[in-house]
């Protein structure tokens, strides 16, 4: 592989479809960090999988799309770790000054809570619904 093709491949990370993959994966990382494993799993199974399929269509080969995906995911994971570490230091300082209590992870995540329409899901056990409810109550 030439230096030029490597550069071209690296730049593809910044194509909008791959940026979207990165955005979704970043949110998944934050959800996991907040202990919302079930929500993270759903986002991974549906949103992320669909975004990867869309982005891969623009790649010349499977190998190329896999390398871009690897680069995107690794990059986003590092960014999230850095953001959380940064927030853990910065947010308590800010909270102290502003007299507010803020979860560092929540502050770092800054996930926009837009009203997203969810697709219906297959029926699950009632106990799973109760788990969802308890999680929602806790995160509220």
């Amino acid at each position: 592989m030439t230096a030029l093709s490597l550069l071209a491949e690296a730049l593809k990370r910044f194509d909008p479809p791959w940026m979207e993959v990165g955005r979704i994966f970043r949110r998944i990382c934050f959800l996991r960090a907040e202990g919302l494993a079930e929500e993270a799993r759903r986002a991974e199974e549906f949103e992320l999988a669909e975004a990867i399929t869309r982005a891969s269509k623009g790649s010349e080969s499977e190998f190329e799309s896999e390398s871009i995906l690897h680069a995107v995911l690794t990059g986003e994971k590092e960014r999230v770790c850095d953001a959380i570490a940064f927030a853990e230091i910065l947010v308590p300082m800010l909270a102290e000054r502003l007299g507010a209590k803020v979860s560092p992870i929540r502050a770092a995540a800054h996930v926009p809570r837009k009203a997203q329409a969810r697709a219906p899901e297959a029926p699950r056990d009632i106990a799973d619904f109760i788990d969802d409810m308890i999680r929602q109550d806790k995160s509220a």
């Binding site: 697709a119 219906p120 699950r124 929602q136």
Partner: peptide
């Protein structure tokens, strides 16, 4: 009611 526990929204 859509197969998951309804959110506040």
């Amino acid at each position: 009611v859509q197969g998951y526990f309804p959110t506040k929204e």
